[in-house]
Amino acid sequence: MTAGVEWLDRVNKRDEVIGRVTRDEAWARSLPVRVINAFLVNSHGQLWIPRRTMHKRMFPGCLDMSVGGHVDSGEDYVEAFRRETQEELHIDLDMISWRERAAFSPFETALSAFMRVYEIHTDQAPDYNRDDFSEAWWLTPCELLRRIEAGDPAKGDLAELVRLCYGDQLT
């Protein structure tokens, strides 16, 4: 394995592993890969929404999901969810309530990858990794979409993911 290269599993239309690809190649060629995303949800139905730091290579300074990342080659979705949640929010999933909210295919949605979406239930804002995020807010799905529509920059899949997962709360 080459140092500094992030290897992902390349998958077919049924989300079955058919090979490996670097992250850069996957995005340059729009190849199907796997990602996880999660939202911290409090007892008021608000989502904990962070802003990415300005030094991020992709989507610098953008609003983001509470947790997000690629599923590394050889990893499954839950392993990636556990790893990313620990890295980004310093949360041990064995110590908190969570569930899988949804699973999506890029062939059936406008999303960029095969995606599992999780919810972490808590009323406490996390002690997040300051290398990943610069600030954060508790926002209802409607408040978040209004911010994005008003021009607050957001990560590519964020608005669509909120509509797909929390559309019943948008009326």
Score class of each variant (00 low, 15 high):
45 G>H: 03
40 L>N: 05
42 N>E: 15
37 N>M: 10
34 R>F: 06
38 A>K: 00
24 D>I: 05
27 W>A: 03
48 W>I: 00
42 N>L: 03
35 V>Y: 11
46 Q>S: 07
40 L>H: 03
32 P>D: 07
51 R>Q: 14
31 L>V: 03
45 G>C: 05
33 V>K: 05
47 L>T: 00
38 A>M: 05
33 V>A: 13
36 I>G: 06
35 V>H: 11
30 S>D: 10
34 R>L: 06
38 A>C: 12
33 V>S: 11
32 P>R: 02
22 T>F: 12
25 E>T: 11
22 T>H: 13
23 R>I: 00
52 R>K: 15
24 D>R: 12
27 W>F: 15
30 S>G: 13
44 H>T: 09
44 H>D: 15
48 W>L: 07
43 S>C: 03
49 I>A: 03
23 R>D: 07
31 L>C: 05
38 A>P: 12
22 T>Q: 12
43 S>L: 03
26 A>M: 02
34 R>Q: 13
25 E>N: 07
36 I>L: 06
39 F>A: 02
38 A>W: 00
27 W>I: 07
29 R>L: 13
48 W>Q: 07
32 P>Y: 02
42 N>T: 01
52 R>D: 02
51 R>I: 14
45 G>D: 14
32 P>W: 00
32 P>A: 10
34 R>G: 11
25 E>P: 03
41 V>P: 01
32 P>L: 07
31 L>A: 09
40 L>R: 02
46 Q>V: 01
53 T>R: 15
41 V>C: 04
26 A>L: 03
25 E>W: 09
53 T>C: 12
49 I>R: 03
50 P>N: 12
34 R>K: 13
52 R>N: 07
36 I>D: 07
24 D>L: 12
52 R>H: 13
40 L>Y: 01
51 R>L: 10
30 S>K: 15
24 D>Q: 15
42 N>Y: 01
25 E>Q: 11
45 G>I: 00
29 R>E: 03
41 V>H: 00
31 L>I: 08
41 V>R: 01
22 T>Y: 11
35 V>P: 06
33 V>Y: 11
37 N>T: 15
29 R>P: 02
28 A>T: 10
27 W>D: 04
45 G>T: 06
49 I>E: 08
35 V>N: 14
51 R>G: 10
29 R>T: 04
27 W>H: 15
49 I>W: 00
50 P>R: 03
50 P>V: 02
39 F>E: 02
47 L>C: 06
30 S>W: 14
49 I>S: 04
48 W>N: 05
53 T>M: 09
41 V>D: 01
28 A>Y: 14
50 P>D: 07
35 V>F: 08
32 P>M: 08
27 W>M: 13
27 W>P: 01
27 W>E: 12
37 N>W: 01
25 E>A: 10
31 L>K: 13
28 A>Q: 15
47 L>M: 09
49 I>Q: 05
31 L>W: 12
45 G>L: 03
43 S>T: 06
26 A>E: 04
43 S>R: 05
26 A>F: 00
30 S>R: 15
49 I>P: 07
48 W>V: 00
22 T>M: 09
46 Q>R: 04
40 L>A: 04
33 V>M: 12
25 E>L: 13
49 I>V: 15
47 L>S: 02
32 P>F: 00
30 S>N: 14
35 V>S: 13
39 F>Q: 01
25 E>K: 15
42 N>M: 09
27 W>T: 02
28 A>L: 09
29 R>D: 03
28 A>E: 10
42 N>A: 04
48 W>M: 04
48 W>F: 15
38 A>E: 05
